[in-house]
Amino acid sequence: MPDRRTILADTALALVAADGLKALTHRAVDAAAGVPTGSTSNVFRTRRALVDAVVDRLEARDLALWHDDAGAPPPGTRDELADRLAHYLEVFGVAQAELTRARFAISIGAPDAVVAAHARFLTIAEGMVAAVGADDVPRRARWIADYCDGALLHQVTARRGDAIDPGAHRSAIRRLLD
């Protein structure tokens, strides 16, 4: 069973996913978690600490997805990497769309809170790009991150409910790797 800190952070994440960053207050988390008033502020003393907890939970969930893939062989070719990233776009854009909306709400409303997590993601992306033998690794990793962010933003907002075309994403990502 998750500890109290994790339960409160997950509840906070659910609030942001449902109603945006403006809905994130200590009292709202207390109410949604069904805990006594003041419980959340005892664990997360400031609003920034609460926002940081949401960012940490998002990153933990993202890393759990990567770890679920740990049994799969790492992408060894550019085509395999494009396939894998297109798959992740489908997961984040459909199955985890609410969490992706929360990620964007925090990125826009509290950009300083996501800087470190974004840097860690770029490090992972650079490792994948380097592993498939692409040149200019940092630049290509940023291009892929920017493409994925833009594709996800459209998928969970303006194209909400539309089917994802993994083939189109695969093709676009593949071009970014060449």
Rank of each mutant, 00 (worst) to 15 (best):
L85F: 10
A172P: 01
H26A: 12
F104E: 05
G127P: 05
T40I: 06
L15H: 08
D19T: 04
L99D: 15
S39N: 03
A113D: 02
R142D: 12
A117C: 06
D62H: 06
R47E: 07
T6A: 12
R142V: 11
V51K: 11
T123N: 07
A119P: 03
L122N: 12
R101V: 11
F121G: 01
A97E: 13
E80P: 09
V16G: 03
R27L: 15
T157F: 14
R174M: 01
T77F: 02
M1T: 09
T157W: 04
V16K: 05
A131H: 03
T123F: 06
T46R: 05
G133Q: 00
L89R: 12
P73R: 03
E80I: 07
R84A: 15
L152I: 08
R140W: 11
A32L: 10
A172V: 06
A134V: 09
A168P: 00
L21N: 06
R45V: 09
R142Y: 03
N42E: 08
L63R: 15
L50P: 13
E98G: 09
C148D: 08
D146V: 04
V94P: 00
I173S: 05
G167T: 05
H154V: 08
A102G: 02
G93L: 08
D79T: 11
A17G: 11
V115K: 14
D52T: 08
H169R: 02
W143T: 13
R120H: 11
H169C: 01
M1I: 05
G150T: 05
Q155K: 06
V54A: 05
L99W: 07
L176P: 03
S171G: 05
A102T: 04
D136G: 06
L24I: 09
L21G: 05
T157H: 10
R48F: 00
D136Q: 13
L21W: 08
V16Q: 11
T25A: 02
P111Q: 06
I124C: 00
A49M: 11
A130W: 05
L152Q: 01
W143M: 15
T157C: 04
R174Y: 09
A134K: 04
V35P: 10
A33W: 13
A102H: 07
S171I: 00
A145Y: 09
